Amino acid sequence: MTIAANIIIALVAVLHMYFLVLEMFLWTKPSGRKAFGLSPEQAEATKVLAANQGLYNGFLAAGLMWGLYLGAEGTPFKVFFLGCVVVAGMYGAVTASRKILFIQALPAALGLALLVVA
């Protein structure tokens, strides 16, 4: 189960690095606007907020990668950062879009469950 947990955790980290890129660098570009359903005006008006959000997603990814790098000693980091991702995903699902529950929270919850079982 440890290998499966680490694979899921790595995927969650990569996903959050992708969120960082979308929110910090592509927010006002066609691909970023399409991903979030924004008009050019909405994207321009919210780009600073999105960049801040992207930075936080990068911190989540970094914490998960640090936990993976530490191996077994990194389990507390993995648990903490996966928990943060689950909470962020649930909050996003309630306040922004239900699909966030499936894109963000569910993979992290799966990784957390596999980590606890391991």
Rank of each mutant, 00 (worst) to 15 (best):
V14S: 13
A93M: 10
L112C: 00
T75K: 08
F81A: 00
A93K: 02
V48K: 10
N57Q: 07
M1F: 09
Q53V: 06
K34I: 10
V21R: 09
S31E: 11
N57T: 05
A105F: 13
V117N: 04
L110I: 15
T75E: 08
F80M: 13
L115H: 04
M24E: 04
A108C: 03
V14L: 15
Y18D: 11
S97E: 11
L68D: 01
G54T: 09
S97D: 07
Y18S: 09
F81Q: 07
T46Y: 07
P30F: 02
V117R: 04
G89D: 04
K34N: 10
S39N: 03
A5I: 10
N6V: 03
F36D: 06
V85R: 08
N6Q: 08
S31M: 00
G63R: 03
E73M: 10
A61C: 05
L114C: 08
V48C: 05
S97N: 12
A10Y: 02
Y91L: 09
V14T: 13
P76S: 02
P30E: 01
Y56M: 15
L22Y: 04
A72T: 15
A108W: 00
G92N: 09
L55G: 15
L112Y: 04
P107C: 01
L106P: 11
N57I: 03
N57M: 11
A4P: 13
F77S: 12
V12C: 13
Y91P: 00
R33A: 03
G37N: 03
L112H: 02
F81R: 02
L110A: 08
A10G: 05
T95P: 06
G54E: 10
V86W: 07
F102L: 14
I100D: 11
V94K: 04
F25C: 12
K29P: 03
I7S: 03
G89I: 08
R98I: 15
N57H: 12
A105E: 12
P40L: 00
G92E: 07
A61N: 01
Y56C: 11
A113Y: 14
I100N: 06
P30G: 07
Q104T: 14
E44T: 11
I9S: 06
Y91E: 07
A109L: 14
P30I: 10
P30M: 01
K78R: 12
M65C: 12
Q104M: 14
W27L: 02
I8Q: 09
G111K: 02
S39Y: 13
F77T: 15
L26R: 15
K34H: 09
A118W: 05
A108H: 01
P76Y: 05
F19E: 04
H16C: 08
Q42H: 00
A45W: 01
G54L: 06
G83Y: 07
V12I: 14
M17K: 01
A43E: 05
N57V: 15
E23Q: 15
L55S: 08
N52E: 07
L82V: 02
Q104N: 10
G54F: 03
L106A: 10
A35T: 11
G54D: 09
A13F: 05
C84V: 14
E41N: 01
A72L: 14
E23P: 08
L38R: 00
F19P: 08
A50C: 05
K47T: 14
V85C: 01
L22G: 06
F19I: 14
L82Y: 01
F36K: 07
L82T: 00
S97K: 06
L114F: 06
N6T: 05
L70V: 06
L101Y: 07
E44L: 09
